[in-house]
Every structure is written in structure tokens, then in C-alpha cells.
Design a protein around this nucleic acid. Sequence first.
RNA 1: GUGAUCAUGGCGAAGCGGUUAACGCACCGGAUUGUGAUUCCGGCAUACGUGGGUUCAAUCCCCACUGGUCACCCCA
Length: 442
Amino acid sequence: MKKIEARKLKGFADYSGTTMSLRSQIMEEVRRAASEAGFIALQTPALEYAEVLLGEGGETDKQVFMWEDNGGRSVALRYDLTVPFARFVAENGNLQMPYKRYQIGDVWRAEKPQKGRFREFCQCDFDIIGADTLSADFEVILAIMKVLTRLNKGTFTMTLGHRDVLGGLLKVFLPDVFQSPNGESACLIVIDKLDKIGPEKVVNELSLISGATREGAQDLLALLQKRDGEGSDLAAIKASLVSDEVATAALGRLESLLDLVNAIDMPLSVKLVADLKIARGLAYYTGVVFETTLDSLPSFGSVSSGGRYDQLTQRFVDRELPGVGGSIGLDRLVAAFEELGVLENTKRAGVFVVLASQGLESWAFQAAEFFRAQGVLCEVSLKPSKLAKQFALADKMNRAYAMVIGEEENSSQTVTLKDLSSGEQHSKLSLKDALKLLKPEL
RNA sequence: GUGAUCAUGGCGAAGCGGUUAACGCACCGGAUUGUGAUUCCGGCAUACGUGGGUUCAAUCCCCACUGGUCACCCCA
């Protein structure tokens, strides 16, 4: 009979073993950070009406998985968690504002897969809608920083920018680009490439944009490259924005965010750095934007990013619902950690119950359940075989103890415990005495 | 979506126009029958991505497809 080839679609992956443990660990930290700050959980469907997800024909629209369903509806797999969230908020007018939610879920993008880049991947989002405040921006950023810090697997740099500041600078240095409809965003895209292609090329590319002058571009680049410590020279930028109230206010917000982070009395392994050239992110961002990279693997790209999106819900309703959110790219983060080789080997834990002969299941499970009830991982050998085999299996499964149940233990209602690290063995212990060894703290 | 590159058992990896296609890891069994490292012995999957073509002969050469990887684009 012809066999079906066991295979997966490109860009899709199975996760198991240590990779899956790390994924679970990250999700736990996300839930923890969320509940600490009162973000509530939300789950939305994977599939949405295509029109809900599609923007104005931008680059990202091309990467939306989309098809006609069996009922003739045009449907699409969600591209991110933010747009469906905006749909949810628009659809539920009775939410108590500000509304804070977190969400862990898979998203799909029809891209060409690469390392750390998948067609299906998990994002962990924190969003706040209904509050255009510094505190809202900060809660989102802080939550992400805490998650990354608590993973304890590396240090990160979060670069912080603001669309209004960059917009203000463009008005000063390249005012005439605003005469064409896409002039501003064209400039932002080019400026964002600064680190990658260098200032000369950026100036060249900027000069090609209608309305831009070479001199203006050079001055702008010079200003953006000025450093004050690790970040942009905010004082110099502020000096060029004096006449622009919006941009000055935006800059003030950035400074306040930096101050807030510095005031937090908690060691963070994420360094927050202002860098005004950060412009990207999705098209719907309107204010603060940020990207986060792993210090030891910056080439992997952003493992977390986000920003303020004050107009997103207006796709659906007239109400003004300012929003801010950030996302941790769980699978990219995991891939980066794997690349770095920082996945922990599973530690020895728990008990493996070795059965010396058949017919001992009753006592074995009584004992196992006794320990399980105390929170001890306890697995019973499922295939009776030679003792040596079962011990080897206990070792391979990384159990801390092997517990032997044989005729003697059965008749005396005891267990024999062997510490698999030290080789030390304690024969015929009562369940209580065994528990003292397994959980000394009790 | 554009370009480059690669494709041998579950994984890693030799070979290369004509071979019984190595080897390592993993897995399974055994080394006198209540004990895990190591060691020793044995077994294992009928492994050359798929489909065409060139050739007396193709895993090896050519083309297409599929898949992996990398760069661009975009992005987590």
C-alpha cells in the first residue's frame, strides 16, 4: 500500500523536548508579568474575515494567508495579535477603559522562511487600549522587560523611538518631502536602514526622494548619528525641534520613559536606549515605537517590538481609542537561544518506579499516588523488563531517584529508593520516610 | 516576492559515472536471571528528495519540481 509521506509545510514546525520546555517557560513568565500588572487574558480566533486584517495594501498585506472558505467567505489567518485585538475592542463597546489584555497565540505570515523566521509562530502580546499616557506606554515596555529579564538567558537592548519626533525632524530638514503623499514614509523606511547600509547610502537614497535635498539629508543624518552615551543625543534633537510642539512633546515622553525605567528598583537585563531612527514596525504605529535585540545575537533581528497605535480601532469604529502594545516573538526568541546554545539540560527530577516483577501494580500505584499527592513527579515503569533496563531508563529520563517495588517491598508495604546521582540506596523505607528523602523541606 | 546555495538511513557524515554505498550517534537485544556510567558482542533501518533527460551504465552529469539554508524585501 502506498504510504503517505510524513512531512510538514515549509515554515511550520513541531516543537518537543527542551525546545518545548523553554517555550512553556516563556509563556509562564508572560502570564506572570501580565497578572502582576493586571493584564487580563484574551483569546481570539485564528481565522478572521480577510477585510478585518488587511490594511491599505501595504507590504504586509501580501504576507497574509488568505483564501475563500467553503461557504464562499474571504477569510485570512491572523497576521498578528494586535489587529484582531483592535477588532475585539471595536466589537465590544462595553469594555472598561483603559483595557489591558495579554494574549499568547500563533500568527501566520506567508513569507519565505529563514532562520528565526517562520510562517507560523507564537507571539506574546501586552496591549493597553483607551489610555494615551506615559504610564500606559511604560506598563507595556516594563512587562516585556520583566519577561526577558526573568528568563535569565541573556541581555537585550531595547531601542526606543518616536514617529512624531522623527516626523518633526523631517519637517525641519526635509520639509518639501511632505508635498508628495508617500514622501514621509519613504524617508522613514530609508532612515531605518541606517545601521545596515551606512550613512552615505542613506543620504544617497534620501536624495532620490522627491523634495529632499542632499544637504538636508546630510544634516539630518549627522544629527541622528550624534550620540549621548549609548542613545541619540536628545538635547541636540530637542534644540532643532524648538518650533514644533508636537515633536517636542513626543521627545519629552521619550525622556520620561527613560527616566521611569531608570527609577525602577529592579535589575533588568534589558537596556533601554533612545534611538530616533527607529521608525519601522507595522504601518499602524503612530507614536512611541521600539525594537528589542539580543545583545549576543543582534543579527537575529528583533525578538520583541511594539509601539503606540492611536488610530487602529478607527478602522472599525469612530470612537477614539488610543492603544499601545508590544509583542514578544516567542519562537524567534527560542530559535535565538537555541543558536546560542543556552538551552538548559533537563535537570534530574522526580522518581522512576521500577517494577521487579509482574503483579505489583497495585502497591506501585498506591505508592506513586502517595508521592504524587505531595507534588513529587512520579512515573511508573510501563514496560516490565529486566531491572537493569528499567534503571537505565530511569537514568535516561533524568529522574533523580529510582524506586524499586519488588516482592519484598510489596509484602512489607515499603519502597526501596536509590539516588541516581550518588548511587546511594535506602532499602525498604516506609512511604513517610521515603517522602522525607524526596522532599526534605516538608 | 527576487537572487544565491545545498539535498545520502531518525540524526551527523564519507563516497562519486560501474562499490555488497563506509563510519559515528541514536535505537533494539545480549554479556548466567533485584540495579543505571563505561566496556564488549550482536541487530537495526533494503539510506542516495521527486520527476524527467544524457550515457552501455547515474547517488555522482543536465533540466524541472519540492524542501533546507543564506542575502534582499519585510518583519517577531
